[in-house]
Design a protein around this nucleic acid. Structure first.
Length: 270
DNA sequence: ATGGTGGGGTACCCA
């Protein structure tokens, strides 16, 4: 089974590129972030034509997460049921932001996650980001307490560069979000909760990224960030046989729409 | 040069 995550930056704009990649990538499950549409606006037909079922949550033009699967799509769940401390915001607001969608696909519990950006260290969104991550850790740890062997994948845009080598120039990021110590501690805490990065062992840096800013020719200048991750529970990590970052999908192509600013990340499970 | 490029929308906000 091949499981992928991709921040698509608007599925309505990008659907042709996403579906074109799916046709070639032999991916069974694709988690998407930043779909930027409502459920009614999500372009289901191109996915259905390739044999994928899709679950989506997005209540407005911001955010929105989805899971497309051709190996079953069961127990679809928005946010974390039974976790009122899911975020520092009221539950209905957190749901409206549509940052987490779970489903069981081919026996694997998959969560498509769009971690809050944080904006700046002084912004209330930064505190919200840390609260969100703490709630995610506590919730995920609870799942493993119930079922230690359960294969669970926490995939998506984490908006954290956990190591210095995960950004093209640490000096540029001094004092900014994504590299701050509290954010990195939150990412390490996921590992302490037994959810480990299953992609990095197959894609060692430095210079290996999943995101390149649209501005200042960042992609052409190889100025990127590694912020998209697949974290696996022990039961999932034991099955991983390979992983890749599909950098080619970040490349502009003549005669087609612009690429997303993120590349897909894929993990292979035995 | 306080820029650049994208997406959402239709005035700017967000990444």
């Amino acid at each position: 089974m091949r499981l992928a995550t991709w921040n698509v930056n608007s599925i309505r704009t990008r659907v042709d590129r996403v579906v074109d990649w799916l046709e070639r990538a032999d991916v069974d499950v694709l988690a998407m972030q930043e779909t930027k549409c409502t459920d009614a606006q999500f372009p289901m037909m191109p996915f259905a034509a390739l044999g994928y079922e899709v679950a989506h949550v997005g209540l407005n033009q911001w955010n929105g997460v989805a899971i497309a699967s051709r190996v079953g799509l069961e127990d679809v769940e928005v946010g974390f049921t039974g976790q009122p401390t899911w975020s520092s915001k009221p539950e209905e607001e957190a749901t409206a932001e549509a940052r987490a969608l779970g489903a069981t696909c081919g026996g694997v519990r998959v969560w498509s996650l769009y971690v809050p950006n944080g904006r700046t260290l002084a912004d209330p969104h930064y505190a919200y980001k840390l609260d969100w991550l703490a709630a995610l850790r506590d919730t995920a740890a609870g799942w493993l307490k119930e079922e230690p062997e359960k294969p669970i994948a926490l995939v998506g845009d984490w908006n954290i560069a956990p190591q210095d080598e995960d950004v093209w120039d640490m000096a540029v990021f001094d004092g900014r979000t994504h590299v701050s110590e509290p954010e990195r501690a939150a990412f390490r805490a996921m590992h302490d909760a037994q959810f480990t990065d299953v992609v990095r062992p197959f894609t060692e840096g430095p210079g290996i990224y999943t995101y390149w800013d649209y501005t200042q020719l960042a992609f052409q200048k190889r100025r990127g960030m590694r912020i998209d991750f697949i974290l696996g529970s022990p039961g999932l990590a034991a099955r991983v046989t390979g992983a890749e970052i599909v950098k080619d999908e970040r490349r502009p192509k003549k005669g087609t729409t612009a690429p997303s600013d993120h590349a897909p990340v894929v993990v292979e499970l035995g």
